[in-house]
Design a protein around this nucleic acid. Sequence first.
DNA 1: TTGAAAGCGCTAACAA
DNA 2: TTGTTAGCGCTTTCAA
Lengths: 341, 341
Amino acid sequence: MSRPQNRPLTLRDVSEASGVSEMTVSRVLRNRGDVSAATREKVLKAAKSLGYVPNRIAGSLASQRVNLVAVIIPSMSNMVFPEVMTGINRVLEDTPLQPVVGITDYLPEKEEKVLYEMLSWRPSGIIIAGLEHSDASRAMLRASGIPVVEIMDTDGTPVDAMVGISHRRAGREMGEAILKAGYRRIGFMGTKMALDHRARKRFEGFTQALAKGGVEIADQEFYSGGSALSKGREMTADMMARTPDLDFLYYSNDLIGAGGMLWLLEQGYDIPGQIGLAGFNGVELLQGLPRRLATMDACRAEIGRRAADIIVARTAEPAQEAETIITLTPTIQQGDTLRPV
Amino acid sequence: MSRPQNRPLTLRDVSEASGVSEMTVSRVLRNRGDVSAATREKVLKAAKSLGYVPNRIAGSLASQRVNLVAVIIPSMSNMVFPEVMTGINRVLEDTPLQPVVGITDYLPEKEEKVLYEMLSWRPSGIIIAGLEHSDASRAMLRASGIPVVEIMDTDGTPVDAMVGISHRRAGREMGEAILKAGYRRIGFMGTKMALDHRARKRFEGFTQALAKGGVEIADQEFYSGGSALSKGREMTADMMARTPDLDFLYYSNDLIGAGGMLWLLEQGYDIPGQIGLAGFNGVELLQGLPRRLATMDACRAEIGRRAADIIVARTAEPAQEAETIITLTPTIQQGDTLRPV
DNA sequence: TTGAAAGCGCTAACAA
DNA sequence: TTGTTAGCGCTTTCAA
């Protein structure tokens, strides 16, 4: 009642209320060192009744340890990164580490800014999406002196550790599967984002596989913005009007693929006989559509888990050895839209 | 080159490298006070070439100010909270404030833990979903002495400020609209979550509106887990088998509604003549389905924006006045699945 | 326009 | 088992 309105409580308040030194109060609150049961009781009671919340800012400064893991990702609004976060959380939940998320919107300048902000809090580790960063960002990552795990993609050289899949290979394998199934007139639809390197790599792997089979992409279209489902519809309608003899459509993500599928079904196309379809991501959300879209799982939750595992191992006392390059291998999910071989 | 491997740089390093006192370096780096252009240059050059990243932990401790806004939400994996975050980000982007997100999984104990963690970083404000909190959480919120905005829901009494919609009223209005359109045999499907207070309130408002029209819910079913789209399918199939004379289905979210819609269309039901459908949330994702589901926008982005506005106003120097209770009014989106009156 | 001193709230290290 | 002392790296305040 006598505490001035807006001053937050300090250790000293708990110390005075319990008649125990600040140091011992600190020990009790952190379960460190030997404290007698009686003292412990007293302190805990005082802290609770006052409603004391420790000041981690002061604590971190004094101990030179911050139990934060910076997680830097491009977006939260598509299906993929929330699942990665779930994987990360699952692992960090059982540790004192706490994830803190920063969003880059696929913009390198924003990534740089977010990274700088994050580093200014001196986190214990960094998990960052992608292998492509500005020189300044890469310099910061290297200079930070803390574990850095680059995730999602393994087509490149990491600053430190990396966990992901090869998107180049994912595209290649899908291309091969499509050719093996006998499709030859192939259209591609994807996002217009020059900065989505993983989509780009899938596309490159895809065209490369086709080329090896003597096939060239017959038509392609890129979109940006808008609801993915309806974009998939529109683009598919456009493309089939423009190039009616296509026998396969490869979509850079499941959502536009689903839109395309719905449109084709309405038009009475025979899927996968007359025309085959495939997407990318293995989005669980889409289960329940009239057909299961052929796709490829991006191993999102596992990527999150493995990345967090690395951080946990490296920040353990004593620091554990940890693999620094983990390449997961996604498999094609045949679904109902890819003709069986 | 002579810096020991793992010691992060300090102001002192920049001070030595530039031959300017620590204090002046600090001033330059924060754009505070008058510093001559020449000194400024020198300092900036030294800081950049060293790759100095300020230590915000020390800075915050010294200045007793932390430019963090704690955002505490139940989940990131459904459509609703990412959109709220987008709204919050949009506003905070233009300020020095940074959002930090904590996830509660709809569990009060976890909310308590997350809140405690967040408060230990002494943020400048808190945005927290819902009005239902444990006594301990409410006590922490009150004792924190910082602006607290409870979001999403306005059916209740906030600790401090609140921004949201009345879910009770949303349910009521949908009930009234359905009755007015002439439907009488009404089924309800929703999640089993006892802790999703907003879904509960919508349901209460809904049944209340029906009761006023002399109608009782003819069948109902609750689910948990799994892909929402397929759950919607399954539940709808079950319910129509059990209660074939239903003429309306109200779903507690758009995703299960979409699943139900797809199933009904496949079965050849006449929508909205023979049977009407409605969901909740106004999920943009679903645009592109064969029919637009009737729904109600939950004003997610606007809630985020307005909540952030309040925090910004209250943390401004000098602190601004700000509304403390903002009730947004969602409107019914008729779509193609609700018979016009 | 610049610098020196004090201290933010806590913890490491040591002493009792 | 408990207490004392000396910082952690920065900013506030005041003096030059």
